[in-house]
Amino acid sequence: MSHSVAAPVAGAPALPTIPLRELAPWALFFGLLGTLVIFFVSADQGAVSIPAGTAIHEWVHDGRHLLGYPCH
């Protein structure tokens, strides 16, 4: 009656993996983008200023303090 015999439950089912070749472009693209975003919020216009000024620093100021990034 049960159809589950057809399902590959017996033994250890193969765990899915993602080929690194497929992952690489995503990791490269978002790795750079994500790092850049974190840099602008957490470190820019304090230690270094890529766009000179204090606009970003002032805008996300409270986030820097509460998320533990050096400020002040």
């Binding site: 978002f30 983008l33 994500g34 790092t35 975003v37 974190i38 602008f40 919020v41 957490s42 002032e58 805008w59 996300v60 100021h61 409270d62 986030g63 820097r64 509460l66 998320l67």
Partner: peptide, 15 residues
Amino acid sequence: GLLTGSLTIGLAWGG
């Protein structure tokens, strides 16, 4: 400001 900081950091670390 806090919302912007939290969202961007959350999105970046999430990705």
